[in-house]
Design a protein around this nucleic acid. Structure first.
Lengths: 340, 340
DNA sequence: AGAGTCTTCCAAAGCGCTTTGGCTTTGCTG
DNA sequence: CAGCAAAGCCAAAGCGCTTTGGAAGACTCT
């Protein structure tokens, strides 16, 4: 059932039917009702390809998915996707994942922009002066960055959480509890979020005349194994830290294991705070010793980004609006006063 | 730059240019070269919307993403996606995620099929007599099921791993080691994979005149927390099992925690084997006690499914071909003879 | 009553590609 | 040299929708 048939059936022109369906004003209300009715009754659905060709709009949100044998998609991505999908569903948006060689994403961005395959793009895991952001910005297609990319020299729309503030708060608490030697087990420090977190820790320490020693900072891909290794390395040093801030729950699992393997305990020997993106399948309150966290739902961020992208597509949102969410500090059993 | 311009530029007709570009035979090789050259030089890329409208092909693979506040996307999905994306990239396929209300996916399947939005669909986490499989089968759009749906009364193309065989082998090993009381911590038992795994365990036990007691079977959503709870419940019973088979590494984390909390040890008091889908961020060899696993890379499955979908799209693969992959049993420190 | 203004609808022109059907030109056969 | 097939190219007809530029009729105003 296509427009032509439907129009013929109603003894109207395609124009009128099309306008009636798309809510244009120049059509009699009574006629519109007739058209709507017939459309529903015959299950008419405009062919999206045709509509796209005519309008240039696709009703899709794009994401360039870096792939490659050595590339692991972040498990955070699923949670983010849940949120995005949740909103997208209620607004009839689909999501297009365009796989790209991790080392050459530019080609793919250009392609999807040139083709007008999607109405908007979202970008994740930005780095300082991220080229993708600059590129997409010039490509003239609506987009939002999840996270921030500093030092780009221009403004752009983004949604980020207050990573610096979160880790500042966490560190401040640890310092107040008497800890003098803090360590940070961070994610990939080429990404902005990691940089911000480290900055937060340093700032809190500096406020008390302390500093974060370089040997007390690790920057690794956030896996359980890396958490374990990092923690062992930290705790086996002379002058080992008495408190650890950790960038992910998954790494925290490794930290907990390392602490135990070394015959130490949490929080007796080491206090631990980790960042929690709120995964349904791994909860800090269920750690052997309930884990203190800085908490921010990545899922909500996904939904919000979808919402804002939709707004940008329909022209309701414009300009380079940045949005920074505060992060909760949730204190549980894994922190205590520094050992004497 | 569109076809028309390019054709005009070359003083050829659109027809010829189109044919040259798409590899049709009725064009002079020399002309083809000229066309190809000019196309490359001017960065010509056919407009996908137009092409789609003309051919009905979209170059996209579809997946219906169940969403909703209560729905958690399985973290396995990312790994699967890595594999799928890896193949898709090299074949210029995009992936469309169509979010759907988890309770009404049918509408969405019908929509994407009717619209010819995608060239093929993949379906995951099938259940016995899964309605989605039946539906898509009648919709006449190429598809592949990741997993199996038994009792549908018709054949369909799928890719599955030998879940029953894997858990049969694992259980047989445990029985050979003298274990008499086995337990199974399984995933959602409405899904086929879980049914198959339980069947594998039962068959192995039956072969030695043993049986799997109902109180020794848990079927839960695969989270760390649920693994912990299930393990505690099992191990605190009278006649607690001496060996546990577990359907996921994430749950195994919980099991390990429970065992320790109860003051027991692996493998001294309890042997443990879990299924490993091969996540880069959580490896069984890095568990405190290296974990024995049944191993099958879900990532490879993703790549293979993409490959087969591509083959089906281009007509190279047809019919209801089922493909079942064997599963490795990898024995590590977490299994030992039954305690005396 | 004639002029101007809405209102409501329509024919037709794209959007950019593929594909059908046909027309030359060339080369070869008998 | 007629006859024919193959090779190489083209014009034009879609694909199904939106949108432009009217046109016809109803209504208001002077």
């Amino acid at each position: 059932m296509n427009l032509k048939q439907l129009a013929h059936m109603l003894a109207l022109s395609q124009t009128t039917v099309s306008r009636a369906l798309n809510g244009y004003p120049e059509v009699n209300e009574e006629t519109r009702r007739r058209v709507m009715d017939a459309a529903k009754r015959h299950g008419y659905r405009p062919n999206p390809s045709a509509r796209r060709l005519a309008t240039g709009k696709s009703g899709m949100i794009g994401y360039v998915l870096p792939t490659g044998a050595a590339v692991d998609i972040d498990p955070h991505f699923v949670e983010f996707l849940s949120g995005l999908g949740d909103y997208a569903r209620s607004h009839d948006l689909d999501l297009v994942l365009s796989p790209a060689d991790a080392d050459d994403q530019e080609t793919t961005y250009r392609r999807i922009a040139a083709n007008r395959q999607v109405d908007a793009i979202y970008i994740s895991s930005p780095r300082p002066a991220d080229r993708r952001v600059a590129l997409v910005n010039t490509l003239g297609i609506p987009f939002i960055v999840h996270g921030r990319s500093e030092g780009s020299g221009f403004d752009y729309p983004y949604l980020d959480i207050d990573n610096e503030g979160a880790f500042h708060e966490a560190s401040r608490l640890l310092v107040q509890l008497g800890h003098r030697r803090l360590a940070l087990i961070n994610g990939d420090d080429r990404e902005t979020f990691a940089i911000h977190r480290e900055r937060g820790v340093r700032r809190a320490l500096a406020a008390s005349g302390l500093r974060l020693e370089n040997r007390h900072v690790c920057s690794v891909v956030m896996t359980e194994e890396n958490g374990y290794r990092a923690a062992r390395r930290l705790l086996e040093q002379d002058g080992a830290p008495t408190a650890i801030a950790c960038s992910s729950l998954i790494m925290a699992l490794g930290v907990v294991r390392a602490v135990r393997d070394l015959g130490l305990s949490i929080p007796g020997d080491v206090s631990l705070i980790a960042h929690d993106d709120v995964f349904p399948w791994l909860k800090p309150e269920n750690f052997s010793v309930p884990l203190s966290t800085t908490r921010s739902s990545i899922r909500l961020a996904g939904a919000r980004i979808a919402e804002r992208l939709a707004a940008r597509i329909s022209g309701l949102e414009e300009g380079a609006r940045g949005e920074v969410w505060p992060v909760d500090l949730v204190v549980r059993g894994s922190v205590a006063g520094a050992p004497v």
